[in-house]
Design a protein around this nucleic acid. Structure first.
Ligand SMILES: [Mn+2]
Ligand SMILES: [Mn+2]
Ligand SMILES: [Mn+2]
Ligand SMILES: [Mn+2]
Lengths: 217, 217
DNA sequence: TTAATATTTTAGTCTTGACTAAAAATATTT
DNA sequence: AAATATTTTTAGTCAAGACTAAAATATTAA
């Protein structure tokens, strides 16, 4: 049995491992999970005891195959519930993360399979992130941050790198949503801002915003 | 903040208090919650500290107004989730209780309000139990156990007193479901069994089964 | 290549919610 | 009314998962 707290650690290690090499530092986990480094050391030992993580003192943590699958299962649940909340209960995409943080720990394989079917087996959640299937597999849509796109090119907004409430609300305010067709029309070197054009309007966005918007070309 | 464990105790005290006078013994709670009496004493003190229960040593426990409302809110969530599982995810009524035991602790008022609307504000759960509204109010359908019904009378099966998996599976096997029109045709004093007639068939049921089937006349 | 700094681990505490065993209070019999 | 049985509470433990402070290790800079 994997506890709620263990699930949260596995998820954190998984996410951190995916952006860099696969071995993660105690401090990085501590920051992600908002706990102290000493608490992380304790938990990481437990995960290693349960064969969910590889851990060598002072050298960081990585997930075992079993740990990785467990992490993906939690992520699958999180993203399916987010999809449910938006598609069926009409929540906005900025409201669902905190509720999904709770729902992702509900234990029932049958429930998740049925929820998956009820939602017509979605492949991506409301933030454009891929939903693993029940074996933990998924394919990420190839997309590029606007930062890396040269003026003149265009694509469809398929995911956001930052899913924070503040950022999503900013996008709501500026009427930018997943699926929108976006053309990059200008880049201003002075402040590294971009000017982009949608079906309905042209707006200028900061470097920080550009970085977090991913288009598939 | 009310913890998951506190919510379970409030629910137990509420259910026990409803069948008898409103004051409940330590032992009764212990049995309901499957814990030892000493653990109950500890928790009951915490509930009293938080103004959720009235407690006098050796004299039993009752809920305060606030405790009662909290209990009803948990019960509301439990029954709404059970309804969701049966109506939307096509679970059978004998499968939903254990999952609802987990879901009832998810904290988000907005979620429950939206779930309620999504289900078209149901008044009763899959076992015929009333669903409190967001103020904790509900009206129970008037119904009588078959035990108290004289042969010759008939009514509609509106709830079951026992929601255990074993009993619900028995009803599935015998194709008895809520909403069925049932006529009591005979009572056999020797073993206190009843013979009942539905639209499709006539069957004999034991006293124990009869006791747990409630018809509204 | 030391010295200073940063990271990580250890040791010891705390809280929550459980437990056992023993003591105290209440209830039931004789 | 006393003896016995039952219920309830108290006292002391335990495990999980967090914390602080101090020690150990690793990294970076002088
Ligand atoms: Mn999320
Ligand atoms: Mn998401
Ligand atoms: Mn139930
Ligand atoms: Mn029910």
């Amino acid at each position: 049995m994997v506890t709620l707290s263990e699930e949260n650690y596995l998820k954190a290690i998984y996410h951190l491992g995916n952006q860099g090499d696969n071995t993660v530092s105690t401090n990085a986990i501590a920051e992600q999970i908002e706990a102290k480094a000493s608490s992380v050391t304790d938990m990481v030992k437990k995960l290693a005891d349960k064969q969910l993580a590889n851990y060598i003192k002072y050298q960081g943590v990585s997930l075992t195959e079993e740990g990785r699958l467990t992490a993906r299962t939690v992520i699958r649940k999180h993203r399916l519930w987010e999809t449910f909340l938006v598609k069926k209960l009409n929540f906005s995409w900025h409201e669902v993360h905190d509720i999904a943080e709770q729902l992702e720990h509900i234990k029932s394989e049958k429930l998740i399979d049925k929820l998956d079917d009820f939602l017509d087996n979605p492949t991506h959640d409301p933030h454009g992130d891929p939903i693993p299937d029940k074996h933990g597999n998924y394919t990420k849509i190839k997309s590029k941050s606007i930062l890396e796109i040269k003026p003149g090119n265009q694509g469809v907004l398929t995911s956001v790198k930052d899913s924070s409430k503040a950022f999503l609300k900013y996008l709501n305010k500026n009427e930018l949503a997943l699926g929108d067709s976006i053309k990059v029309v200008d880049f201003e070197p002075f402040d590294e801002s971009f000017t982009i054009e949608t079906k309905t309007k042209t707006i200028t966005i900061s470097k920080n915003v550009a970085k977090n918007l991913c288009l598939s070309i």
